[in-house]
């Protein structure tokens, strides 16, 4: 299982703040999870329509599409940050 969090317009487009998802075999990276969410439903297709606009974190550290995922990970998806 992975806990997945969504922030800013990704949260709005997904229609949820978070979910817990079993990681299917074959989904081994952040990029693999994005592909899964894109194909799952219309919300995922819309939220991840432009993956270049999406940033990710795994266990609260910035991640890339190639970052590996393990059972129990906390994964977050969000737009480029705009604090300060």
């Amino acid at each position: 299982m992975a806990r997945i969090l969504y922030f800013a317009w990704l949260r709005e487009r997904m229609g949820r703040t978070e979910e817990v998802l079993p990681l299917p075999s074959g989904v081994e990276t952040v990029g693999g999870l994005i592909a899964l969410l894109q194909q799952r439903d219309a919300a995922g297709a819309g939220a991840f329509a432009h993956p270049a606009m999406v940033r990710a974190a795994v266990n609260q550290e910035f991640a890339t599409p190639g970052t590996p995922l393990q059972d129990g990970d906390e994964v977050a998806f969000f737009p480029p940050v705009t604090g300060g």
Binding site: A76, P79, T82
Partner: peptide, 27 residues
């Protein structure tokens, strides 16, 4: 600190405009 904070701290700004709908600030 402020330069790194702007690109490395997970904050997102959402603006409520006087005219037109609200919008997320782009990086």
């Amino acid at each position: 600190l402020i330069d790194w904070l702007k690109t490395r701290a997970p904050f997102w700004k959402h603006e409520e405009m006087a005219e037109g709908g609200p919008r997320w600030v782009e990086a």
